[in-house]
Design a protein around this nucleic acid. Structure first.
Lengths: 245, 245
DNA sequence: AGACTTCGTTCTGCTTAACAGAACAAGTAC
DNA sequence: GTACTTGTTCTGTTAAGCAGAACGAAGTCT
């Protein structure tokens, strides 16, 4: 039996953090989504917050350097963002593991490899992306946010999440450890994806090959499945995990 | 006469943001300063916050992807940090202006150029750094935090701040638009710095040459002053400002 | 010139968010 | 068995911080 739950209550129940901190992040997100500095009223419209509320939070954001005030009345991401980005890169060894293996796949003629992690309930984040050596590419970049419910990598993340999704297609992915999507995220593109695990079989993310659909014939896809499973086994082993098959 | 002011009150008076947001940033800073994931008790010791307070804020930080929980009980910077870092780079055109000009200086045989901005009251942040072609270098990297009150770049930032610092040495910097430091930040290093302005003569940051002290003889320093003033004039012009001299 | 709209800034009463701190269970070391 | 440290949960109290109004300045339109 399905119980009707108010969305706010549901979000509040499953994630009881600190509202003011959430508001601060929504302000940062508003600035992130615009490549131009934004003024107070634009931030208010984007976030739905009152200007006085925003101003007070901006005091903290500016004080910590997350946001800077430019042109007297506009706001933009500040130098602390860059600082944190560099700290993240320094602390995050994944790129040193993933990029050499992804480069080797490219050198061997693969489609464009990407690595994705779950970002929110409905979105995934492309952490790493290399372009293949083929003459045509699908348009995905490091840092892109992509839908969870469409695309091979999204399906993999859903299938192996801590709370795995239900469904016959999800069961099939869990059985074969591979997902295929033909024209889901974009009708001209296709992808093959498989999970990367870390210690204790915990899902780290999804490695995928993607590119223009015409290069994903059934024999191509079968070969990609073999190649990507070998790669995710190697990555999982390097990460201290044991790939389940 | 010096008036004794409680630091907390002073900070609170000059920066009345949102305490919970400030706490969240102190947690992020605790994670940033460690290259290894940290557990709850370490974060508590570093920030001085209670564990229950930290846990609640971590709910928000994890929910937004700023922090991830790893190894069951440790916390690290999360993928949103990377995402924001990339957004900052995309939105920030400065690097496309500064790096070519800095590279040209290096090619012409300059000491290592860096660009610094004020980060907090007492610290500056190195936004860009290129190494010179000389055989010895001083150890400064992009992303480093450095003291405001020592080093040529720090002096420049203080001299031309919106609320400029007092003092005869500050007056001299404001007159000549150049600061020199010999062995201040580090006894083996020296630097020459000058301000970069943007529109409306607003200080953007400080460009500096720095390196081992033995290459900063009086004739060297005089030549560097000429070179760096030419560079900051060019940068300021490109930024829509007019260099005052 | 006047009216109108939109902006940034400041202020304040009220409500509940969120904090401080305790309590508890589990794991580790001696 | 005892002591210590950890992560987790709970709750009474208080003041943090929010919603919303008010204000002055600037820009636009007629």
């Amino acid at each position: 039996m399905s119980v009707q739950i108010d969305t706010d209550t549901e979000i509040d129940k499953e994630h009881r953090g600190v509202a003011a901190v959430d508001r601060a992040f929504s302000i940062i997100a508003a600035l992130e989504s615009s490549s131009m500095p934004r003024n107070l009223s634009e931030i208010s419209r984007t976030t739905g917050l009152y200007k006085s509320t925003i101003l007070r939070i901006l005091q903290s954001l500016q004080g910590a350097g997350y946001v800077v005030r430019v042109e007297e009345s506009k706001y933009a991401l500040g130098p602390t963002i860059m600082q944190l980005g560099l700290a993240y890169e320094r602390a995050n060894p994944l790129r040193h593991l993933f990029l050499p293996i992804m480069q080797r796949l490219v050198d061997a003629g693969s489609e464009s490899p990407s690595f994705h992690v779950r970002q929110t309930k409905d979105e995934r984040l492309c952490l790493f992306r290399l372009n293949s050596n083929h003459s045509t590419l699908d348009r995905v970049h490091t840092g892109d946010r992509l839908p969870m419910h469409r695309g091979a990598a999204g399906k993999v993340l859903l299938a192996f999440d801590e709370e795995p999704a239900d469904g016959a297609d999800m069961d099939e992915i869990r059985r074969t450890f591979v997902a295929v999507s033909l024209g889901e995220r974009d009708k001209f593109c296709a992808g093959v994806a498989a999970p990367v695990f870390s210690q204790r079989n915990r899902l780290l993310g999804a490695l995928s090959f993607s590119g223009p659909k015409e290069r994903f014939t059934p024999p191509d896809v079968e070969q990609m499945k073999v190649t990507i499973l070998a790669a995710v086994r190697e990555l999982t082993k390097e990460l201290g995990g044991t790939f389940p098959i």
